[in-house]
Computed example of a mutant assay.
Amino acid sequence: MTDTRILALEEQLAHLSRSVDDLSDVVARLDTENAVLKRRLQMVMEREAEREASAGGTAILADQKPPHW
């Protein structure tokens, strides 16, 4: 009885250990993707700031409220 119980616990521990390893891999991959997305967003923000600055500081028409507002 005790051997069967120990074997079941070892089996469960092996599955849990595998799950932890898999989740760790997912977290590492998501961290890398997050870093890439942050860099891309920063680049887009910098480009937009440059575009606005080169437009002479005027507001983009899409950002302006219509006169009737």
Rank of each mutant, 00 (worst) to 15 (best):
A49P: 00
L37Q: 10
L41C: 03
R29Y: 05
P66Y: 01
G57F: 00
T32Q: 07
S54T: 13
L30Y: 04
E46R: 12
T4G: 10
M45Q: 15
P67N: 04
D22T: 07
M43D: 13
R5H: 11
L37H: 09
A53R: 15
A62E: 14
E52S: 04
S24Q: 09
S19F: 05
E52C: 08
A35H: 06
G56I: 07
A28Q: 06
T32Y: 04
Q12G: 05
V44Q: 10
A35C: 01
M43R: 11
V36P: 00
M1A: 11
A14G: 04
E46N: 15
A55N: 15
E33A: 10
R47Y: 03
L16I: 11
V44N: 13
K38E: 09
T2S: 12
E48D: 09
T32N: 06
R29D: 03
K65Q: 10
T32H: 11
P67R: 02
K38L: 13
D22H: 04
K65V: 09
D31G: 08
M43H: 05
M1H: 06
D63A: 06
R39K: 12
V20R: 05
V27F: 01
V36D: 07
S24V: 02
R18F: 13
S24G: 14
E52Y: 02
L9Q: 14
L13M: 10
E33D: 14
K65C: 02
V36G: 03
T4H: 08
T32V: 13
R51P: 01
D22R: 02
V26F: 02
E10V: 08
L13A: 13
V36H: 05
T2H: 04
E11N: 15
R18Y: 13
V44K: 14
G56D: 07
A35D: 06
A55D: 12
D22W: 01
E10C: 07
H15D: 12
L16T: 12
E48T: 11
D25P: 01
R39G: 05
Q12A: 13
Q12Y: 07
E52D: 10
M45I: 12
S19D: 14
E50P: 00
I6C: 01
E50W: 02
M43S: 14
S19W: 10
E48S: 12
R5K: 12
T4W: 08
E50C: 07
A8E: 11
R47D: 15
L7P: 01
A8M: 04
L16D: 10
P67Y: 01
I6N: 02
G57Q: 06
Q42W: 04
E33N: 13
R39M: 07
S19C: 08
M43T: 15
A59N: 07
R39I: 07
Q42V: 07
V26Y: 03
M43P: 00
L41Y: 06
T58S: 09
V36W: 06
A35N: 04
L37S: 08
R29G: 00
E33Q: 10
A55K: 09
A62D: 10
T4Y: 08
R51T: 10
A35V: 03
R5C: 07
Q64K: 14
W69G: 00
V20M: 00
T58N: 08
V27M: 02
L30T: 03
I6W: 00
L23A: 08
E50D: 15
R47I: 09
I60G: 02
